[in-house]
């Protein structure tokens, strides 16, 4: 990655060490949500924060190569569709229980990609304005 973009070396090193931990913590919160405090929403927010952390440390360009608005939208809609599908299966009576971890995962996908896409849209708009 380009050394010029983003913050200083110290921040980047620490970020490399911690980002994975934050991500895994988010998944942990997501998976234990059906029986104790936590759940898809909180876990999704933490996962999104880990990605936002990456942007803050390494700069916009490093992330925009991997992720853009279109991909964010695909992730959002697939998360929402997965959640809708699971709940519709519940309404149709195909499943009655045991779906909570899966729907938590779907919510986490929706929330994390949604928050992250919001962040991307805002910094995309702000950077476009700076160029003009």
């Amino acid at each position: 990655m380009n050394n010029q973009a983003g913050m200083s070396l110290i921040v980047k090193t620490i970020t490399r060490l911690t980002v994975g931990l934050i991500f895994i913590y988010g998944i942990y919160i997501m998976l234990q949500g059906h029986s104790s405090p936590g759940g898809g929403f909180a876990g999704g927010v933490i996962i999104a924060l880990s990605f936002i952390h990456l942007i803050l440390a390494f700069g916009r360009k490093a992330v925009f190569q991997k992720m853009n608005e279109a991909r964010g939208l695909i992730l959002i809609s697939s998360g929402a569709l997965a959640f809708l599908l699971l709940s519709t299966l519940g309404f149709l009576g195909i499943f009655s229980k045991g779906l909570m971890p899966f729907s938590d995962a779907a919510i986490a996908l929706l929330v994390s990609s949604g928050l992250f896409a919001m962040f991307l849209v805002l910094i995309g708009l702000a950077s476009k304005e700076k160029k003009q």
Partner: peptide, 10 residues
Amino acid sequence: PLAAAMLTAL
């Protein structure tokens, strides 16, 4: 409508 909105986006 929710599913249709998401499908349209996807």
